[in-house]
Nucleic acid binder design. Structure first.
Length: 228
DNA sequence: AGACGCGACCAAGGTTCGTT
DNA sequence: AACGAACCTTGGTCGCGTCT
């Protein structure tokens, strides 16, 4: 008999505001030391240690000791996806009286390690429209023309058989409430676009991305996405 | 004299324990 | 859950002795 997954205990780990702040601080995929996470969450080092210990024992965070520092990171992209999936519910539970649709995060951001926000959704839509991706129930399939397009850009489209991570996956965008491309391919695409200078990380917000002038031109040339 | 190794010391990051 | 105090671990610096 297959036991039901213990959803309650995982949800309980995320339910405490301080722990939620810590998880949000790690959403962009980097590792951070305990002290930095404590400051981010507005906690004392002792309190942060207690929370971090629970998150590690709950399997949400991984601890990597390095000298006198102890770095924490999300155990897997699935943790980030879970947090991302909770965000629409968090927004609906606490509606803002003054919605700000043009916030940088809503326009373009990184969701753990792939592209999200309006741009992430627009790009995924364009890839499907162009016939580069075919949408399945839970993921996307790369078509031959898509393989050639990704290959021209230098994005690897061959799944690594050793990797346990999904090659593509449909990731629900919390701000757009629509799906964007995640998984290994989504991560590789974001990395390529950053390397190519199409996208740049915002200096004001860790997860926010901005599209460069070159990026705007290339988006139009490749995918006919008009972006201002 | 300069290079090197070793140990003492201090500062910083992090954890444990007791308490509120 | 959070705080203060004590403690542990580690990295960096400095001084000293030895070797070339």
């Amino acid at each position: 008999m297959i036991e039901d997954p213990d959803v309650a205990s995982v949800a309980g780990l995320m339910a405490v505001p301080a722990r939620a702040e810590i998880l949000l601080a790690l959403m962009h995929g980097q590792s951070r030391p305990a002290g930095e996470l404590a400051r981010f969450a507005g906690l004392s080092p002792q309190a942060a240690t207690a929370h971090l210990k629970k998150l590690v024992s709950g399997g949400l965070l991984t601890l990597v000791p390095s000298g006198r520092h102890r770095y924490y990171c999300l155990t897997s992209p699935e943790v980030a996806h879970a947090i991302e999936a909770l965000m629409p519910l968090a927004r609906s539970a606490r509606p803002s009286p003054h919605p700000k649709p043009t916030q940088p995060l809503q326009k373009a951001r990184s969701c753990y390690d792939h592209l999200a926000g309006q741009l992430g959704v627009a790009m995924t839509d364009a890839l499907v429209r162009k016939g580069y991706l075919i949408e399945n129930e839970r993921d996307y399939r790369v078509t031959p023309s898509g393989e050639s397009w990704f290959c021209d850009l230098g994005v690897n489209t061959q799944p690594d058989p050793r990797s346990r991570r999904a090659f593509t996956r449909k990731c629900l965008d919390w701000s757009e409430r629509r799906y964007h491309l995640g998984g290994v391919l989504g991560a590789a695409m974001l990395e390529t676009f950053l390397d190519a200078g199409w996208l740049a990380r915002s200096s004001s917000h860790r997860r926010a991305l901005r599209i460069t002038h070159a990026g705007q031109a290339e988006l139009w040339r490749h995918l006919e996405i008009e972006w201002r």
